[in-house]
C-alpha cells in the first residue's frame, strides 16, 4: 500500500515523525487499520450485502404464483418503476400511481426533516451554549424519552391526537373550537410522529458540531456590527453545516422508507414507499417488484450518502 502515500500529497495529521520512516509506518498502519475494520466490515458484508444481492437477483426474476419468485429472467419489475401496462387497455403508460407515491414519500420525508431541524437546531444550540454541567442535564432530558418503546410513543401520540383525545378536549374546553378537529390520520400526524421519532438522530450530530463551535468567530461577527440574525445566518450556520447535513440525512433516510409510524398515524389511506414495498412482499405477491422499488429507493439514498461521504472525507483531509 505504499502507493497510498504517493497518491495524494502527504498531509501530516499532526504527529511529528521523520518523513523517511513514514512509508514503513504506513504499511504497519494499514495492516492495523484492516484489522480494526475487519469485524464491522465483515459482518455487514456477510449479513448485509450478501442478502442484498439476493434482492438484486429477485428484482430481475418473475413473481411466483403465490409469493416468492420463479428463477426466470424478466426486466418487468424495473420497467414498472416508470411505466405500466394500462389496467384496461394494455398500453404502456407512465406509471402515475408510482410517481405520486414517490413524490409523496419525498415530500413527507422532507417535511419531517424540516420539522426536526426547526425544533432540533434551536434546541441543540441552546444546549450547546449552556454551562457544561447544565449541558449534560439537558442532554439527559432529551435522551430519556427515546428509551421508551417507539411503538408505545406512537400510540401515545394517537391518544393525544384522536377525536376525543387530549388536544381536542383542551381546545374544546378553551372554546377555541366547537367540533373536534380531525388530527389523526393526516399527513401532519405522520410528519409529527416521524419528527418525534427521529429527533435524536437530528439533535445528536447537530449538538456534536455545535459543542465545538468556536465562539471567537461569533464574537468577531458581532464586532463587525452583525445583527444576531446575520451572525446566525452567516457565521453559525455555515460552521455547523456538517452537523446539519448529517442530521438531515439521518432523519431523511429512515423517514422516506418508514413503514411502522406511517401506517399507525397515517390511517393507511395513502401509500408511501415503505408501505408500497411491504405490500409487494405481502398481498400483491410480487417480490420482484418490491425488490426493484426497494433498490430504486436505495440507489437514490446511496447517491446522497456518497456525496456526503466524499464531502466529509474531503473536509477531514483539510484539517
Amino acid at each position: 500500500m505504499a502507493a497510498t502515500s504517493s497518491d495524494a500529497p502527504v498531509q501530516e495529521t499532526g504527529l511529528s515523525r521523520p518523513e523517511l520512516a513514514s512509508r514503513a509506518n504506513d504499511r504497519a498502519a494499514m495492516r492495523r487499520r484492516l484489522m480494526l475494520l475487519a469485524p464491522a466490515v465483515l459482518i455487514i458484508t456477510i449479513c448485509g450485502l450478501a442478502p442484498l444481492s439476493i434482492v438484486l437477483a429477485y428484482s430481475w426474476m418473475q413473481p411466483a404464483e403465490y409469493a416468492g419468485v420463479i428463477p426466470q429472467f424478466s426486466p418487468d419489475a424495473w420497467i414498472n418503476l416508470a411505466f405500466e401496462r394500462d389496467l384496461f387497455s394494455d398500453e404502456l403508460l407512465p406509471n402515475f400511481a408510482y410517481y405520486s407515491i414517490y413524490a409523496r414519500s419525498i415530500m413527507m420525508a422532507g417535511m419531517t426533516t424540516l420539522l426536526a431541524l426547526a425544533v432540533g437546531f434551536p434546541t441543540s444550540y441552546f444546549i450547546a451554549t449552556r454551562a457544561p454541567h447544565r449541558r449534560n442535564l439537558w442532554l439527559f432530558l432529551i435522551t430519556i424519552p427515546f428509551w421508551t418503546n417507539l411503538l408505545i410513543r406512537t400510540f401515545a401520540i394517537m391518544l393525544i391526537l384522536r377525536d376525543e383525545g387530549v388536544l381536542n378536549v383542551i381546545l374544546l374546553k378553551l372554546g377555541i373550537i366547537d367540533t373536534p378537529l380531525q388530527l389523526l390520520f393526516t399527513n401532519w400526524a405522520v410528519s409529527y410522529g416521524l419528527a418525534y421519532a427521529y429527533l435524536p438522530l437530528m439533535v445528536m450530530p447537530l449538538y456534536a458540531s455545535m459543542e465545538k463551535l468556536d465562539f471567537r468567530l461569533v464574537e468577531a461577527g458581532y464586532d463587525l456590527y452583525a445583527s444576531r440574525f446575520q451572525v446566525l445566518r452567516r457565521v453559525i450556520i455555515p460552521l455547523v453545516k456538517p452537523g446539519i447535513v448529517a442530521g438531515s440525512i439521518l432523519c431523511f433516510i429512515p423517514a422516506i422508507g418508514d413503514y411502522v409510524i406511517t401506517s399507525q398515524l397515517g390511517g393507511g389511506k395513502r401509500m408511501m414507499l415503505g408501505t408500497l414495498i411491504a405490500m409487494q412482499f405481502g398481498p400483491a405477491r410480487n417480490w420482484p417488484q418490491g425488490s426493484a422499488i426497494a433498490l430504486g429507493l436505495m440507489i437514490i439514498v446511496l447517491i446522497a450518502l456518497f456525496i456526503y461521504a466524499k464531502k466529509v472525507v474531503a473536509r477531514s483531509n483539510m484539517r
Binding site: 405520486s100 401509500m271 405490500m279
Partner: peptide
C-alpha cells in the same frame, strides 16, 4: 394494480 391505484 387496482389496489396500488386506490392507495396512490
Amino acid at each position: 394494480k387496482i389496489w396500488n391505484n386506490l392507495l396512490k
